[in-house]
């Protein structure tokens, strides 16, 4: 089975790992951090301009893949809402001893509710595990890109990337 973003629409692990937007293993242990899944050179840099801490660099040419400076990233999540491609996530691996948090952009109605148990899915839209919505951010600045944070068992923090839509 062929892999990769051009073939399946899902970035492969190889593509993700070789992109400069992922925090390293140490940074993941330390607390919330941006997780940039941008593996194609497209002319785009709102992630760089929105970051107040200079933690994301695209530079010139604008088609460079965004580079994450994990030590500068505070995990504020502004880039998650700013990315027009909805390709940035925020992960907090050690939220508790057994659970992690994953924050992702969500542009469907209705939004889930805080405290609600939801069906979490992976990059292929397949059900992974049930999770709990712990936070929803939907400020005017985000312009209708809501940020949903789910709490999931720790082993899924690299896998869960969205939730099932309600219909």
């Amino acid at each position: 089975m062929a892999k990769g973003i051009k073939k399946t629409g899902v970035p492969s692990w190889e593509e993700l790992k070789s992109s400069p937007g992922l925090p390293d293993a140490d940074r993941l242990e330390e607390g919330p951090v941006a997780f940039i899944e941008c593996v194609q050179e497209i002319p785009c840099n709102p992630c760089e301009t929105v970051c107040p801490f200079g933690a994301i660099e695209v530079g010139s040419p604008i088609t460079n893949l965004p580079k994450l400076y994990g030590e500068k990233c505070t995990g504020c999540g502004l880039c998650v809402a700013a990315c027009p491609g909805l390709a940035i996530f925020k992960v907090h691996k050690n939220y508790t001893n057994t659970t992690s948090l994953v924050e992702f952009p969500f542009e469907y109605h209705p939004l889930p509710k805080t405290g609600e148990t939801v069906r979490c899915v992976n990059r292929e839209g397949k059900f992974v595990v049930e999770g709990k919505v712990v936070k929803i951010r939907n400020s005017k600045q985000f312009d209708a890109t809501a940020l949903v944070t789910v709490e999931v068992p720790k082993k899924y923090f690299l896998e869960v990337r969205s939730i099932e839509r309600k219909r």
Partner: peptide, 16 residues
């Protein structure tokens, strides 16, 4: 291969 931007494809893949 997919013709458009991968990020657009990823969005709909996540939605199943």
């Amino acid at each position: 291969e997919i013709g458009g931007y991968g990020v657009h494809a990823s969005k709909i893949r996540r939605a199943g």
